[in-house]
Structures are given as structure tokens and as C-alpha cells.
């Protein structure tokens, strides 16, 4: 299958020949996607601005009156949300940096080992992707305890030392497989070592993949609720998702405050995705994410 035939794309080819009515219908239903998928986010935003303690609304209230911006300060007053946010940022930044390094090393490593080993390892990675995470919590907890990683960001970052997800490693492998082998050969003749191959040849030609993996791992660590729940003990170490859970325990029906905190947690994830979205959603780019 040639690159052109894919790029030319069926869509352009068929649109012209479609009946006008069908075409309009298609367009309308495509645009209906927007309100549908924005609905939960709009609900979150509008409820986060409602003044706490007001009697419940009658009907759907899209824009609350009065608008209570102070709800966004409340999580910081009730709990050390500032510390949590900083912790989340530190953990996530470290994890993303580590993931980019280790996953791309592993991707390049897979490229360099003999093909037979490579296919075994690729198959292994695919199998690992099929293990439900809850099946490993308990023994990871015991192992981490023995390694002294409980109540320690180390427990959150250990997966990043191993590339975070086999999927990221495979994404890098697939990217590197597109680099002409001659480039590697030439560099080798110049006596380049593994790290030079990695930094001079592999990385520069993998920028879109780097961005994609950076954002995917950002989302993975930023959203992580289970690991801090299981492994962190001291409040000074907590990350935002656990903070949100604490807030929920304080008053489980104080919706405006809970949803304001949810917006605070969601905004960085949404913004980083929007910043990098073309790397996932551009035409004819294969992508996948490590999570839901």
C-alpha cells in the first residue's frame, strides 16, 4: 500500500460523488459530536461556579447566578492543595522525563538486538499490556515495602524507570524502524556508541513520537489515583488526585467545591492534550494511548 493512496484518502474521493442530502446529514451529525462530548465538562464547569449552600436548582442551571469564583480558593483553604499541586507537578515532570529516556532507550535497544530476540520481546510486551493493573497491586505493595519505597515518591516513579508502559516502548520501536538502517550503519562506522546513536540519530527523527509519549505519560502520571492511594502515607507527599479524594471525604455533597477542585485537576491534563492533539489526531498517524 503506497503512501500516496493513503494520503489521497477515500474521503475526498467519495464526497464529491455523494448525494447532497446524505452529505449534509453527515456534516450535521459530525457537529453533533461537539455538544455531546463537551456536555460533562460543561456540567463540571457550571456546577463548580455555583454558590455553596444555595437551595438546589430547579431544572438544569447552565450559568449559575451569582457566579462564585471563590469556590476555586476553597480547596486551598480546606487542605494544602498548593503543596499537592506542586507535588503532582514534580512527580509528573520527573516521570515524563524518565519515561522519555527509558522508553526510547528500550525502543532503540529492541531495534539493535537480533531480530529473533526482538520478536520475543515485542510479543512479551504485548502480553504485558494485557495484564489488568489490579492483578498486580497487592504484590507490588509487598515488593515496594521490601525495597523501602512506601511513603516515597520512588513508588510512583518506579514504573517510569521501566518505560512506564510497554506501549510507549513499542511506539518508539515502530518509529525507529522507519529510520533508514544506513543511517545507523554510517554512525557505527564512525565508532558511535549506543548513547550517541540514541541522541544523534534516533531522537531527532522521533520528535512527534516524543511529543505523543510525553503527553500520554503526562496524563498517566498526572491522573494516577491508585498508586498514591496505595503507597503514600504522609500528607506532605500527596498528589492532587488524592487531595481531591480527601476533599470528598470532608463533605461528600458539597458539589461546587468538589467540582471546582475537579476543574483544577482536569485543566492541566486538558490543556496539555489540546496543545499536543495534532500528534494524535492528524490524518494517517497511528496512535494509541496507554489508558482510558
Amino acid at each position: 500500500m503506497s503512501g500516496e493512496s493513503r494520503r489521497a484518502g477515500r474521503p475526498m474521493g467519495t464526497t464529491r460523488r455523494r448525494p447532497a442530502l446524505q452529505d449534509t446529514l453527515h456534516r450535521i451529525s459530525a457537529w453533533a459530536v461537539a455538544p455531546l462530548f463537551l456536555l460533562p465538562l460543561v456540567w463540571m464547569l457550571s456546577a463548580s461556579l455555583r454558590q455553596p449552600g444555595l437551595p438546589p436548582p430547579r431544572g438544569v442551571e447552565w450559568i449559575p447566578n451569582p457566579i462564585a469564583w471563590s469556590n476555586y480558593a476553597e480547596p486551598f483553604r480546606l487542605l494544602p492543595f498548593g503543596t499537592y499541586a506542586l507535588n503532582s507537578l514534580l512527580v509528573t515532570a520527573s516521570a515524563v522525563a524518565l519515561t522519555l529516556a527509558t522508553a526510547s532507550w528500550a525502543g532503540l535497544g529492541l531495534l539493535l538486538v537480533p531480530p529473533r530476540c526482538r520478536s520475543v520481546l515485542v510479543a512479551l510486551s504485548l502480553v504485558l499490556l494485557l495484564i489488568p493493573p489490579p492483578a498486580l497491586w497487592l504484590t507490588r505493595f509487598v515488593l515496594f515495602r521490601e525495597l523501602g519505597l512506601i511513603n516515597n515518591w520512588g513508588a510512583l516513579l518506579v514504573p517510569a524507570l521501566g518505560g512506564s508502559s510497554p506501549l510507549f516502548v513499542l511506539l518508539f520501536l515502530w518509529t525507529f524502524l522507519r529510520i533508514p538502517a544506513a543511517l545507523f550503519e554510517a554512525a557505527r562506522l564512525d565508532g558511535a556508541g549506543a548513547l550517541t546513536l540514541w541522541s544523534r540519530i534516533s531522537l531527532p527523527s522521533a520528535r512527534p513520537t516524543l511529543t505523543a509519549v510525553a503527553v500520554l505519560s503526562f496524563l498517566m502520571y498526572w491522573s494516577d489515583f491508585v498508586s498514591p492511594l496505595l503507597y503514600l502515607k504522609s500528607q506532605q507527599l500527596y498528589t492532587l488526585p488524592v487531595g481531591l479524594h480527601q476533599l470528598q471525604q470532608l463533605d461528600r455533597t458539597n458539589w461546587p467545591i468538589l467540582l471546582a477542585a475537579s476543574v483544577l485537576l482536569s485543566a492541566p491534563a486538558a490543556l496539555s492534550f489540546l496543545w499536543a492533539q495534532r500528534h494524535f489526531l492528524q490524518d494517517s498517524r497511528l496512535g494509541g494511548t496507554g489508558e482510558w
Binding site: 507535588n87 514534580l90 512527580v91 515532570a93 520527573s94 522525563a97 524518565l98 523501602g148 511513603n151 516515597n152 515518591w153 520512588g154 516513579l157 517510569a160 504522609s234 506532605q236 507527599l237
Partner: peptide, 8 residues
């Protein structure tokens, strides 16, 4: 940033 956090 990967060195273990405080509170160890």
C-alpha cells in the same frame, strides 16, 4: 527530580 521525595 527523581531522587526520593522528602519524608523518607
Amino acid at each position: 527530580g527523581t531522587t526520593p521525595g522528602p519524608g523518607v
